[in-house]
Nucleic acid binder design. Structure first.
Lengths: 211, 211, 211, 211
DNA sequence: GATGAATGAGGCTTCATTCAT
DNA sequence: GATGAATGAAGCCTCATTCAT
């Protein structure tokens, strides 16, 4: 009986104990990777990630058999968090228009300096295998619908317009992040004004000419 | 023996002759590099450039001791051309506002799909060792001044705003170039509307809040 | 706490209990290793063995501190079984010649598809640290002696000849196992015919020329 | 004119000159690779090959973009040489039977100690993408036909039988090469005797039983 | 000067072995 | 004792740059 217990007990313990460490390591890896990917984009050396997370190469590759796996994991996570934080900001807003403004404010403040995310948004536009972008789309879709229903958003503006605006401004954030960190807000202000319904004329179709 | 002869020749002949070739080669290199950098960005293999220009690696490196040198040369040139073509479009416009619109139209149509340029605009913002961007600034500065003098441009909008808008939309162009090549025009339309003086309120300072 | 109890137990219980498990594990490891080594040869990943045996890497390495130890253990065991099964086939035969034929038949049918064994036979020939091969030798020696005494085996044929023939045909079995699984029997037939005493001339010595 | 000459001349020279070196290197690589592959099989470290051939990794990979390419090149070459040398030995023989004997003698003496070749023969049996083996087959086919026409080869023996015998004995050669380098000749002698027509009975089909 | 072959540091990945739980 | 996560030395391959011809 004791045997059984002695055997059974460590069994349970043995299964949970290492996992704590493994989880800690996995988290450390993801955290370090997120950091590094945000700073330097997806072209980083895997060793840099291993170094920063304090694990060996083998550990990293045990958790993420290919570099791409790690990158995708981090991007998915950061995308989700990004989308969620922006959504929260939108929800908290008083009116539909403030929701849009707060959404961009939060989205651009929070994550647009994440190099790998913006890199990936560019790649993903045509091939959205990254489910994350869908979350973002859903949020924007709702924002769009609400604002349009309230007659605040300029007719003809689509979800894709707002999404592309996000991507576009995201790039502006990256460009100015280091030397003029508040500058992008001016562009945002301008763009939002251009989106308002009181602009008068609805936005033409894809063949829109600027004249 | 031939070498001896070539060396024995008068300086004139000996020096001018190869230079013709050298110049031709240099041009071929720059041309090919511009092509490749536009298509694939600055991360391309140097061999690809050598291959397309039809010269050997040695020749390429004789003219440009570092890959970076070649990249800078090409970017400077393409930046200049870009600025110039956009300026021409602006000059040809009837009124100051059309000048701005045509400037963006031309700039975004012509060069924004140049991967290396947009890549570099991002890097260059903070460290403008690339004189090219200055040309662009000058053009924009003038556009800005004219439109403001005519009371068409929203007060408070700066040259940097317009420059950053260019960079930002440039990225949008790249993102959508392959699958929705006309989509960026919608963003441009929106942004230009946001820039119009009839927007009512002037654009606040850097501490602008979106509310 | 449980640990304390387990330690406090009389030596008998404390020592015997884990050993049951240990033995079971060791057997599982050896069994799985035999399978894998047979299928894939000695170049397999140790993890594959651990996986199939259902034990952790630590357990595996507790029993076999080096991969080589496990490989040798398995090979020794499989060699012995191989030799024994072939010996049984030989014993069951009616006459000395049938004993030889059945021996090869059994040996080649049963184990020659064991990749690691055939791999190892090659290495072992010069450095027979593998005692297993000795068992095989003993069987063959006896077969040889009986057949020669009965005047059935061609004079001059040695135990080493028969052993090398086994190795040689073993390779043929592996080569053809997947696409022409019966083909090796033709070679065996030919070789056995070449070994018969009625071949006329005795087999010359090592300096034998084929003419 | 001088210019033209000066430019044209080096052009020609420049194209041939480096090629001499390149060819020398390529040959050195292939030679070293053949050596190493023969000694250690296809699992060798690419660096070992680079080291032995006296070139850098880059040079090696310039000539052979993948390790597999180099391996295939060497194997094809060595296979061809092997087949050819064996064929020559066969051609030089007085009669059809001697041709067979000399063929095996030469084939086994010359190349069977080439680890990678024998490794590959095993893999290639089912998937003969290695054209080399076809050369060998052709030679054997002819030997077979001639000997059978002369009534020297046992009826029922096929080209595949002789080919498999070669592979089988090739393995025997490898096994015994270091400690008993002449021993394989005894097996060859035995096998050839088993192949002779005067063995009386023809060789049965694939379902041959040894009884 | 031109050529393109050569170089080798550095990037990704695997796997025998060790170690904390 | 058992577990399986962690380790890091190799192994394959790429590419900016140099060098012999």
């Amino acid at each position: 009986m004791l045997v059984t217990m002695a055997v059974a007990e460590p069994d349970n313990a043995a299964r949970r104990a290492p996992r704590v460490d493994a989880i800690r390591n996995r988290e450390a890896i993801v955290r370090a990777a997120a950091e590094v990917l945000a700073e330097q984009g997806a072209a980083v050396d895997v060793r840099e990630i291993a170094r920063r997370s304090g694990v060996g190469m083998g550990t990293l590759y045990r958790h993420f058999p290919k570099k791409e796996d790690l990158v995708q994991t981090v991007l998915r996570q950061d995308f989700s968090r990004w989308a969620e934080s922006a959504r929260q900001a939108a929800i908290a807003a008083e009116d539909p228009w403030a929701a849009i403004a707060d959404f961009y404010e939060q989205a651009l403040t929070g994550y647009a300096r994440h190099r790998a995310i913006v890199e990936n948004l560019a790649l993903t536009w045509s091939d959205p295998d990254l489910e994350g972008i869908q979350q973002l789309r859903l949020v924007i879709e709702e924002l769009c619908a609400r604002a349009q229903a309230a007659g605040l958003l300029r007719p003809g503006v689509t979800t894709d317009d707002l999404l592309l605006l996000l991507v576009s401004l995201g790039h502006a954030v990256q460009v100015t992040d280091e030397c003029r960190p508040r500058m992008w807000r001016r562009l945002l202000h301008i763009s939002l004004d251009g989106l308002r319904a009181d602009r008068g004329e609805p936005l033409p179709g894809d063949d829109v000419s600027v004249h």
